[in-house]
Structures are given as structure tokens and as C-alpha cells.
Amino acid sequence: MLTLVIGGAASGKSAYAESLCLQSPLPRTYLATMQVWDAECAARVARHRAMRAQKQFATVECPLHLDRLTLPQRGTVLLEDLGNLTANELYAPDGAGDNTAEAILDGLEKLAAQCDNLILVTNEVFSGGANYAGDTALYLRALAKINNAAAARADRVVRVVCGIPCDYKGGKKT
């Protein structure tokens, strides 16, 4: 089963996605996409890794090249998050560059084939109404393409607003 959880900054999307994982059978894998640039980032990663271990998550770091990943086990996978992965692939010297959306979508297909439940967290960054230029517009177009394709492929799409999950596809009707 593929679930896409979308929301704005500090919307509660990550906490909700994690709660879905905790309701799923073991084993659980947390797929972290954050790039570690400095000691502060490394300390944050270590803190988050320890918190997830208490919840029986195995953490796999994957800031680039999702299409090359082989999971250590099946089960439930939480990918946190598509926005980071998109920025990493788009801007890292060894990233996918202009082929970012295609590379990530290929990686998502390969990832989905390796697990029983896949929960994707992504950013809702398109309702600001501003006109962006240059690299920001490129990033937004790539993430939009990824989000749209993931939503089309997903069994369930949930938008989290102020901590409240709202099902758009495949969930409970309220």
C-alpha cells in the first residue's frame, strides 16, 4: 500500500505519517533524506535516529539516488521527505539535476516494490500565490511533478492541516 501525506510547514504531516507507521506491522524502516552538511546537522540526525530506534524503526540514510537503494528488509517504510530529496537531487553536484523528477519517480517505483507499506511525506508549497523565478521555480516544478505522480499512484492521499488529517483519496470518508 502506498500512502502520500502532504502538508505545509509545521502542519503535523510528519507526526501523522509516523503514527501510520506505528499502526503498521513490523519491521519499520525510516528513510531519511536530509543532507548532513555540518556538525549541527550530524547532531540532529543522531538525535532523530535515537528517537526512532525507541519506536522500532531501522533508519536508512538516503539523501540522493533513491533508485539505487536496496532495503535491508520488507515491511513498512516511511520516506521523510520528498521535498528534501528533490532539493538534494536538483542541486547536489552528483544529483540528478534536470532529470530529478524522473529519477525520484523511478526510485519510488523501485522502493514500493521492496516493501509492503510505503508512506511518503511531502511538502505542500504551491498555495503561496507568488511568482518565483530561477531555481525556485525549477524546484517547484520538479516537486509538483513528483507529488502529482505520487498522488496518482497512491492508494491513499492525506493532507494534514493544523494537525488534522483530511483524506483526499482512498481513506475514511468523514
Rank of each mutant, 00 (worst) to 15 (best):
M1P: 07
M1H: 13
M1Y: 03
I6G: 02
I6Q: 05
G8F: 01
G8V: 01
G8H: 04
G8L: 01
S11F: 00
S14R: 05
A15C: 09
A17T: 08
L20Y: 05
L20Q: 09
L22E: 13
L22A: 11
Q23N: 12
L26H: 09
P27G: 08
T29E: 01
T29S: 08
Y30H: 08
Y30K: 09
L31H: 04
L31I: 07
L31C: 08
L31M: 09
A32P: 03
A32H: 02
V36F: 01
W37G: 00
D38I: 10
D38Y: 06
E40V: 12
C41K: 00
A43P: 00
R44V: 05
V45K: 13
R47A: 10
R47V: 01
R47W: 01
H48G: 07
R49H: 10
A50K: 14
M51F: 13
Q54R: 14
Q54S: 11
Q54C: 06
Q56V: 04
Q56M: 10
F57V: 11
F57C: 13
A58L: 14
T59F: 00
C62L: 08
C62M: 06
C62G: 02
L64Y: 03
L64P: 12
D67N: 15
R68D: 12
L69H: 05
L71D: 04
P72T: 09
Q73D: 04
R74V: 07
G75P: 09
G75V: 08
V77Q: 02
L78Y: 05
E80F: 02
D81F: 02
N88C: 07
A92R: 06
P93K: 12
P93M: 01
G95L: 00
G95N: 03
D98A: 14
N99I: 08
N99Y: 12
T100C: 12
T100N: 04
I104E: 03
L105C: 15
G107K: 06
L108G: 06
L108C: 08
A112P: 02
A112S: 12
A113Y: 01
Q114Y: 01
L118D: 07
L118N: 08
L118M: 07
L118I: 09
V121E: 05
G129Q: 12
A130H: 09
A130F: 15
A130T: 10
A130R: 15
N131G: 10
Y132V: 14
Y132E: 11
G134T: 12
G134P: 10
D135M: 14
D135Y: 00
T136V: 15
A137P: 03
A137G: 10
L140F: 00
L140K: 13
L140V: 02
R141G: 10
R141M: 07
L143M: 03
A144I: 03
K145Q: 14
I146D: 04
I146T: 03
N147V: 05
N148D: 06
N148K: 12
A152M: 04
R153C: 04
D155P: 01
R156S: 11
R156G: 03
V158E: 05
V161S: 11
V161K: 03
C162L: 11
I164K: 11
C166K: 14
Y168V: 07
K169I: 08
K173N: 11
T174D: 11
